[in-house]
């Protein structure tokens, strides 16, 4: 009887070890091969082309997918073939769309008027507009005046208390910097939205065609000290992405140049990920008058 009882710990231990069964994750690849996709029971060619057309045709395939603990099957025509696609959406702060904001929550902002705003619009919420402004962007999912609801805000999470807090629409390619003055830093925002089926992620780069300059090619100088200051005759930008590896747009007001510079990045697949760039302009006393122009290109680059 005593021996039987003494066996209990040993049996328990063996039972524990018995659970240590092999856990095989089968994959259709080895060090030497990979089967991307294959067709079974099909003859002839599924592509054809001439100088003026290209056709990828199919007939009679059944699309579907099934799986168990040890395998995964995607069936159908070219089920295993797809090219990485990146969708890139860039919009500028529409100055004429400004409405005052009185309060905000994680996904809503209360405004003085919702006229001109529609579901699907991208909006920019700014607290204390000016050189030290804090902003966030979102995409409108519903409007129940005076409350605008967005899918999610991305940004620094500004505190909206109704004092110099504004909401703008992000729309189109023309960026209105407004009337520049030597007594303030003028700001304007460029926002973007990326959906990319690229597992390694992506980066967004900014590049200019030339300095911000008037018709006589008189420029407002690029910021060089990390801060665009009132009356200093400086122009620069700072990104909402605070973890950039290869530029200073994450930590300081930085000059935009004719070389591609990183302003945002992600390291995995992205669905509607958003960032924005805040441009800051502070003309110097005696700055030549006129309309200042520049083309800024935001370039999506998928990681490799």
């Amino acid at each position: 009887m005593q021996r039987r009882w003494s066996l209990i710990p040993l049996v328990t231990l063996l039972a524990f070890l018995a659970g240590n069964v092999p856990q095989v994750l089968a994959v259709m690849s080895s060090a030497n091969y990979s089967i991307g996709w294959d067709s079974v029971g099909v003859g002839g060619s599924d592509t054809s082309s001439s100088a003026t057309y290209k056709l990828r045709d199919n007939f009679g395939f059944v699309q579907g997918a099934s799986s168990s603990a040890s395998y995964q099957l995607n069936s159908g025509y070219r089920a295993g073939v797809y090219d990485r696609v990146a969708d890139f959406n860039v919009n500028s702060q529409l100055r004429s769309s400004a409405v005052a904001a009185t309060s905000a929550t994680a996904t809503t902002v209360t405004v003085t008027s919702t006229s001109g705003y529609s579901v699907g619009d991208y909006i920019l919420v700014i607290a204390n507009e000016g050189s030290g402004q804090i902003a966030e962007t979102g995409k409108i999912t519903s409007i129940a005046s005076p409350i605008i609801t967005v899918d999610a805000f991305n940004g620094a999470g500004p505190t909206i208390d109704g004092s110099n807090d504004l909401v703008y629409r992000l729309s189109g390619s023309t960026l209105d910097l407004g009337t520049l003055t030597t007594s303030a830093v003028t700001t304007s925002v460029i926002g973007w939205d990326v959906t990319a089926d690229v597992a390694q992620g992506y980066s967004i780069y900014v590049v200019e065609d030339h300095d911000l300059q008037n018709a006589d090619s008189v420029p407002i100088a690029d910021v060089a000290d990390g801060t665009v200051s009132v009356g200093a005759g400086e122009y620069g930008a700072i990104s909402s992405d605070t973890s950039l590896a290869s530029s200073t747009f994450d930590t300081a007001d930085t000059a935009i140049t004719s070389a591609l510079q990183q302003v945002a990045s992600r390291s995995d697949n992205s669905f509607s990920t958003r960032d924005f760039l805040t441009l800051k302009v502070a003309p110097v006393s005696g700055q030549a008058s006129g309309t200042y122009t520049q083309t800024l290109s935001l370039i999506y680059v998928g990681d490799y």
């Binding site: 209105d176 200042y292 935001l298």
Partner: peptide
Amino acid sequence: ASVQVTPGVSSL
């Protein structure tokens, strides 16, 4: 001609 913002894409 004004301040314009344009999107671009790249492939490596």
